[in-house]
């Protein structure tokens, strides 16, 4: 049996949920970034799967959206990690529980 679109969607759903779990349940800022990266990878997998299973003749739209999304994800990772380093220099911690100075 060949894998259907459904199977790819289930894999990407699982990947997204694992990313969400990492982003919500960990307290270390880098773990949250790892979770966000996992969720972005799941979204890319969805784009490619829907492109592949779309009716022919296919435009390369899904592939191009995935490429742009990878580029934006790289920018996001660079800025996020720079923020983690800047916060670490200020507060000497990367635990998001201790970064509640704006809470009032």
């Amino acid at each position: 049996m060949d894998p259907t679109l459904q199977l790819f969607l289930i894999i990407s759903t699982a990947l997204f949920s694992i990313g969400l779990l990492a982003a919500l349940s960990r307290r270390h800022a880098i773990f949250i970034l790892i979770g966000i990266e996992l969720m972005l990878a799941a979204a890319n997998l969805n784009f490619i799967a829907f492109w592949r299973f779309g009716p022919p003749p296919q435009q390369p739209t899904g592939v191009l959206v995935a490429i742009f999304s990878i580029a934006i994800a790289a920018a996001e990772a660079a800025v996020g990690l720079a923020l983690v380093i800047a916060i670490y220099r200020h507060y000497h911690t990367t635990s998001v529980d201790k970064l509640d100075h704006l809470k009032g």
């Binding site: 949920s17 919500l24 990772a77 380093i85 635990s95």
Partner: peptide, 27 residues
């Protein structure tokens, strides 16, 4: 990039207090 950031912020001992069940339930 992630590995470099981990190496640059490594001095802290990670005090993870178990898993946060709220996040697990939402996921």
């Amino acid at each position: 990039l992630i590995v470099f950031t981990i190496l640059l912020t490594r001095r802290e001992v990670t005090g993870e207090r178990g898993i946060n069940w709220g996040g697990a339930i939402v996921a």
